[in-house]
């Protein structure tokens, strides 16, 4: 299985926060061949299940969010420029002179424009309403092309190699973690398991969080591994806020996550010699795992992080080896916990 190719294909499908359904069919088509069952559930979530074949088997849920950051059209100006607002927490430092795609009846390429810095010398970042999207089309042509108030807009999608084994582009967050879940399922392919493994691609993590609890409710899992990207260390960042790039997935230690599950993950990483690191997020994980304490009747949940540099920009950068090791850690845990006769569940 060519994981990087699948990641590329998955990232090429627009699934903007709140607009995940537009890409649902393409994502189902892409990932279904690797699972026994796939379906929609909850608020625009996708569920992919690998069954163990046993009746009433426990279920472990791997959650990675499907939604992406973007913009939304708020006005069509008379001169054809588009005013926009944010879908999720876009980094405003990236909004000047960037390329976007307006997802109307057909996709339109757009470039953000603002009053030129060499005249304004403005030291403030542009607010929404102080920059516009230029498509080259008139207002009438935009309307004819299906552009409306509420039309979603996404960042340019491409993948570039950066040095040895590093890749960058928009929307590694969080589709890389979906691929990590897929890697885990692939590694467990021939292993005897006593559980069903469900990969959930949840909606709205970047905005309103409606996907995770509603999708999980459709599964009623026994345990949950939330897999999300984690802040990778770079110049100007503090070690306490970030994890190291290239040194394996992080396991989040937080009051919001299950202590037993978290400790098991760290122990298994050591025993299996899978590179991993601890991320301390004492009060909040900042991921879907933060809502798990309120989930259903209470579901033990841990949070695994894939180190990523420049999160929420168009140059989100990951190490391929971190991606693989994240998949390995998930697989190793599932095998330890629910594997054949030797599983800890017995």
């Amino acid at each position: 299985m060519d994981y990087m190719k699948i990641l590329d294909e998955l990232r090429s499908v627009p699934t903007l926060s709140g607009f995940e359904d537009r890409g649902a069919e393409d994502v189902l088509k892409l990932l279904s061949p690797y699972f026994d069952e796939s379906r929609r559930a909850g608020v625009n979530c996708l569920l992919f299940t690998k069954k163990c074949g046993k009746e009433n088997a426990p279920k472990i849920l791997i959650d990675a969010h499907l939604d992406e950051l973007g913009l939304i059209v708020t006005d069509l100006k008379d001169d054809g420029l588009l005013t926009v607002s944010s879908l999720g927490g876009m980094d405003k430092r990236t909004l000047t002179a960037s390329v976007f795609t307006v997802h109307a009846a057909k996709d339109l390429r757009a470039v953000s424009v603002k009053k030129p810095y060499l005249i304004t010398k403005d030291k403030k970042l542009p607010k929404y309403g102080e920059f516009w999207l230029f498509t080259g089309l008139s207002k009438t042509e935009l309307t004819d092309a299906g552009v409306r108030v509420g039309t979603p807009v996404s960042c340019q999608r491409s993948t570039e190699k950066l040095g040895e084994g590093q890749y960058y582009g928009a929307y590694m967050d969080d589709k890389s973690c979906a691929v990590a879940g897929l890697i885990a399922v692939d590694l467990l392919r021939d292993k005897p398991l006593e559980c069903d493994v469900v990969l959930m691609l949840s909606s709205q993590e970047e905005s309103f969080g409606a996907g995770f609890p509603t999708g999980a409710a459709a599964v009623c899992p026994d345990e949950i591994l939330v897999v999300d990207v984690d802040l990778g260390s770079t110049p100007e960042t503090d070690d306490k806020d970030t994890v190291k790039m290239g040194e394996g997935p992080s396991v989040t230690v937080s009051v919001q996550t299950d202590r037993r599950l978290t400790k098991d993950l760290l122990r298994i990483a050591r025993e299996k010699e899978i590179p991993a690191q601890t991320a301390l997020c004492v009060k909040s994980t900042g991921t879907n795992a933060s809502s798990s304490p309120f989930l259903l009747g209470g579901v033990p949940t841990a949070c695994i992080g894939l180190p990523l540099k420049y999160m929420h920009t168009t140059v989100e950068t990951l190490y391929e080896k971190d991606l693989i090791n994240t998949g390995k850690l998930i697989a190793a845990y599932i095998e330890y916990r629910f594997g054949g006769k030797g599983g800890a569940q017995q």
């Binding site: 980094d91 950066l162 770079t234 100007e236 960042t237 806020d241 970030t242 420049y310 929420h312 168009t314």
Partner: peptide, 25 residues
Amino acid sequence: LGKKMVAGGDAQLFEGVGAAKVLHT
């Protein structure tokens, strides 16, 4: 931030990215 960059001198050029510390911090 987020722009593709080229850096080098008279002989060689290398591609990279314009970067800054992450938004969340």
